[in-house]
Design a protein around this nucleic acid. Structure first.
Length: 927
RNA sequence: GCGGAUGUGGCGGAAUUGGUAGACGCGUCAGACUUAGGAUCUGAUGCCUCACGGCGUGGGGGUUCGAGUCCCUCCAUCCGCACCA
């Protein structure tokens, strides 16, 4: 074999490692560039060919930036805590650390073989106590901070205590849980426990009892982004709403900043849109409804707060609805309705999230027997409960305006509640009219106003009377931060008097203890409750929940800057040098989870002065998925006969996935198929005219069960890592999903072989000419330099691969082996195919790694042409081509074209109406 | 329902700003060299048509000398959100 990729790749991978070529240090003489991959969760199945797509792209970009003189930080690590390893531990009893470490070493081995330019000395593992020390540390910091809405940032809780001591919380505007008001005198008379309870309402990491997503199957609560369509993202288990005490991160405090911060980021519009949706900002008003004296005559002095985006329709509010979980429900329910309400709440609680979603649209509800007072008219409006009002959006209560909201309309029709039109323009006998077009009617002081004006007027009136205010509401919820699981970071929290306190920083890391089983205890406590001596030195019990998966991944990009620092998360020096991630590559699946949490986490660290950039990821590229290409055989039902794809319609068949390794170009190796599984040993085949069995195919997810998994390892063995890298890029645009089809790989492999042959003679001996290149050769080279440079800059790696092919094909046909051409060629190729480039670099006699060779700049003067080929079109249709000298004026071109013999021939009798000349491009003759 | 993306040969895709649609590669066909080919090399290859020529970028309409690219409209697929008040 001429091009012995196996030997070459091994050689240079060892060279890079031994010479620490890709280990980087702070170097103030060079500009930094930080390229980051979303670090993987190492699953048991290993990497398939789809996983490294983004890593290859980022590696190309990293190597390119390095050629351009940047000091490139390009690290890799592992998101190592998580459910799969723990589920496996529950099944087998094997400690999840063992599974995880095995998987990590397999992943690392697979990645090393692809030849990435990672600085492995900076590798982090989230399950390593040296690493999670800083996750726990950040939690403590959040616990010790609150969010001041006035300054719009996090501030130390000590400052808040000072304020409380001086003036209570009367003037404090904080992002906090509902909290009663108190003055300094009251604060001073409070017990330690009472004070701590109040402070918990303000902390950025806080504990609270609210409705959470409870997944019994996994035995844990889940964050909103871990639940999709009412089932857990991992495993697809049903999820219930349950009231529980849990840890939260006050992400909502940063809602506005998370939204505003998106503007400046170079992320795809769709990703930003997903985040905007998730944050879900809506403008409207808060309105406080008084509760009318109950039937019993009892007066409840609490008000029902509702949020509405349409305060203009307030005179159309004919009833109110509370979420069944609303805290006032019990208090206001009148005696005769108590049973009905109780029953309704029980039924709601029984439903899983999924059932609730599925039943959306079916109308259920229950009257409480209580009435609220309309804030302007004073009319009594009945208060209902219904699960169409969600407890965790807005205030969990609405004013229902059936005439102008379709859900309220349906509800009102169903329960025969009054419908009052307040915006003209619709027909409320037909349905709700929710348009913003129209004029206010039946609305007292709003009559005659347009909707927008009415909104403004009613808000100022609400504020004037002190019964409501302008309000911006967010859909985003605080992140549930505790999991009733074993394999995660322990909370640095202990309990005294049932009040949580955090450990001192010098007691970190709080190491995950050993347990005898990974199951919950018999009392339903999390696995950590099994740990012996799980308490502080003083004997206080430690928290038994652990942190969720996103905890460890929220600041890992910061840790890479200074991964071995035992004193700080990151030194000031390292942080100020590396600053932020310039390029972040990963999948869209993290759009609402990781990418929101890390932005939140980073903003918090920014507020406290611990990092210097407010947004962590300047530019983000989402790589598309690579799907598998499956093959099918068609078994005739109830037989062991298999019919070829094109004949299958004549029979009643069952398609069966067949291992793609038994199939070449969709032709089944029938012998191998018989050996594949005993049940097919006696299989018979109905072949096509060509005597072959043709398989069907489909593009599907790559998965073991579909027998369509292709691993990087098998590709590397057969073609080498450089071929794998180039082929992955060649498949198509990085951000699009595309199918993997191994058979196409020959093209890029041939290209690399051809490149090799440019440098070698027939006997595979290096053969480089010192002659000066011709103009033609320079033009070929510089066309490629220009194209590849531009393509890399805009992440169009597929087109740069074809540029290389064109260039090498050209040079090959000219038998060009001139040093002055090949040197530059091999540098621009090296980010894509680093091993062969490093090898051919030595063939050119170089002693140092190609990784530091300066990237060649293209010289426009080599691209100039003396003759330009002009397509001549008639009414826009190309009829012929003319070669004209470059640099002619449009007038001269027109003259030459009109007088050209061939053009005249085409014209014949037709008259020329107009000639359009686009210099260097085209000539259009209008006839 | 709302929001976003995508739609180009048999296949993956190219055409960066309105200027020769189908680059590059796979596959297919033909040929060369071969004992052989799932090796290598050369050539052809959008569709219809014997040809002249015509038709072609999801469908329909428009702007323009000229549209894959811009505008309107419809359709399909994928993704995100969804009883969000």
């Amino acid at each position: 074999m001429d091009y012995n990729f196996t030997e070459i790749e091994k050689k240079w991978q060892e060279y890079w490692e031994q010479n620490q070529i890709f280990e980087v240090e702070i170097d103030n003489s060079r500009p930094k560039y930080y390229v980051l991959d979303m670090f993987p969760y190492p699953s048991g199945a290993g990497l398939h060919v789809g996983h490294p797509l983004g890593y290859i792209a980022s590696d190309i970009y990293s190597r390119y930036k390095r050629h351009c003189g940047f000091n490139v930080l390009h690290p890799m690590g592992f998101d190592a805590f998580g459910l799969p390893a723990e589920q496996y531990a529950i099944q087998t009893g094997q400690h999840p650390a063992i599974t995880t470490n095995n998987n990590i070493s397999r992943y690392r081995k697979q990645m090393l073989k692809i030849g990435f330019s990672y600085d492995w000395s900076r590798e982090v593992k989230t399950c390593d106590p040296k690493y999670y020390k800083w996750t726990q540390w950040a939690f403590i910091k959040m616990f010790k901070h609150w969010f001041n809405n006035k300054t719009n940032k996090a501030e130390p809780i000590d400052k808040l205590i000072e304020i409380f001591e001086k003036e209570g919380n009367l003037n404090v505007d904080a992002a906090c849980n509902k909290c009663r008001q108190f003055d300094s005198r009251q604060w001073k008379t409070m017990s330690e426990k009472q004070r701590q309870e109040i402070l918990l309402h303000y902390r950025l990491a806080y504990q609270a009892e609210t409705m959470v997503n409870w997944c019994p199957e996994l035995g844990t609560v889940l964050a909103n982004d871990e639940v999709k369509e009412g089932v857990s993202l991992r495993g697809g288990h049903p999820v219930f709403q349950k009231k529980m005490k849990q840890w939260f991160l006050r992400v909502t405090a940063y809602a506005e900043r998370l939204l505003d911060g998106l503007e400046e980021l170079q992320w795809s519009e769709s990703l930003k849109e997903i985040q905007r949706n998730w944050i879900g900002r809506s403008e409207g008003a808060s309105i406080w409804f008084e509760i009318a004296p109950l039937e019993s005559g009892k007066q409840i002095d609490e008000t029902i707060e509702v949020f509405t985006t349409r305060p203009d329709t307030i005179f159309g509010a004919t009833y109110m609805v509370l979420a069944p979980e609303h805290s006032l429900v019990e208090k206001i329910t009148a005696g005769e309705y108590k049973n009905g309400v109780k029953k309704y709440i029980e039924e709601t609680n029984k439903k899983t999230e999924r059932e609730r979603l599925e039943e959306a649209g079916s109308i259920t509800g229950q009257f409480t027997g209580a009435y609220a007072k309309h804030p302007f008219s004073g009319d009594l409006i009945p208060i209902w409960i219904s699960d169409y009002v969600l407890s965790d959006y807005g205030t969990g209560a609405i004013m229902a305006v059936p005439a102008h909201d379709s859900r309220d309309y349906d509800f009102a029709k169903h329960f025969s509640l009054p419908i009052t039109e307040v915006i003209s323009g619709g027909d409320i006998s037909e349905g709700a009219y929710d348009s913003l077009e129209g004029t206010l009617v039946n609305s007292n002081f709003l009559n005659g106003l347009k909707v927008v004006d009415a909104i403004n007027k009613v808000i100022s009136e609400l504020e004037r009377q002190g019964i409501g205010e302008k309000k911006i509401n967010y859909r985003i919820r605080d992140a549930i931060f505790s999991r009733q699981r074993y394999w995660g970071e322990p909370f640095p929290v202990y309990y005294k008097n049932d009040i949580p306190y955090v450990l001192e920083e010098d007691q970190l890391p709080l190491v995950l203890p050993e347990v005898d089983s990974y199951q919950p205890t018999e009392e339903g406590e999390p696995p950590l409750a099994r740990a012996k001596n799980w308490k502080t030195k003083e004997g206080y019990p430690l928290e038994v929940s652990t942190m969720p998966g996103f905890a460890g991944s929220s600041a890992y990009y910061i840790r890479y800057m200074d991964p071995h620092n035992e004193k700080e998360l990151v030194s000031k020096e390292a942080n100020e040098y590396w600053r932020d991630v310039d390029l972040y590559i990963g999948g869209t699946e993290h759009a609402t989870g990781h990418l929101i949490y890390s932005r939140f986490w980073n903003k918090f660290l920014y507020d406290t002065g611990m990092v210097c950039r407010e947004e962590p990821f300047k530019k983000l590229v989402n790589q598309g998925m690579i799907h598998g290409r499956s093959n099918f055989v068609y078994r005739i039902k109830n037989t062991n006969k298999f019919v070829s794809s094109n004949l299958k319609d004549k029979y009643d068949v069952t398609p069966i996935h067949v291992d793609i390794n038994l199939v070449h170009n969709d032709i089944l190796d029938t012998g191998a198929f018989r050996k594949w599984s005993p049940e097919y040993r006696d299989a018979e085949f109905i072949l096509e005219e060509d005597g072959k069995y043709h398989c069907g195919h489909a593009i599907e997810k790559m998965s073991k069960s579909m027998y369509n998994v292709v691993t990087p390892d098998e590709i590397i063995e057969q073609y080498g890592a450089d071929t794998l890298r180039m082929y992955e890029m060649f498949l198509g645009p990085i951000d699009q999903s595309k199918p993997w089809d191994t058979k196409g790989i020959e093209g890029v492999h041939k290209f690399l072989k051809k490149t090799w042959r440019l440098f070698h003679d027939k006997n595979n001996k290096p053969n480089i000419s010192e002659e000066n290149p011709t103009e033609e050769e320079l033009k070929i080279l510089h066309t490629a330099i220009k194209k590849v440079t531009e393509d890399i800059e805009r992440f169009s790696f597929n087109t740069s691969v074809s540029a290389f092919m064109i260039c090498v094909n050209h040079l090959y046909s000219l038998k060009c082996n001139k040093r002055k051409i090949l040197e530059d060629l091999i540098i621009i190729l090296s980010p894509f195919a680093p091993h062969i480039s490093e090898e051919l670099w030595r063939v050119l006699g170089k002693k140092e790694s190609i990784a530091d060779a300066p990237f060649p700049e293209y010289n426009p003067s080599y691209l100039k042409e003396d003759l330009k080929k002009y397509p001549i079109t008639f009414n826009g249709k190309v009829k012929l081509n003319l070669e004209l000298p470059a640099g002619l004026s449009p007038g001269e071109i027109e003259e030459k074209v009109i007088n050209d013999e061939n053009v005249k021939k085409y014209l014949g009798e037709k008259k020329v109406k107009k000639v359009i000349v686009v210099p260097d491009k085209i000539v259009n003759i209008v006839v």
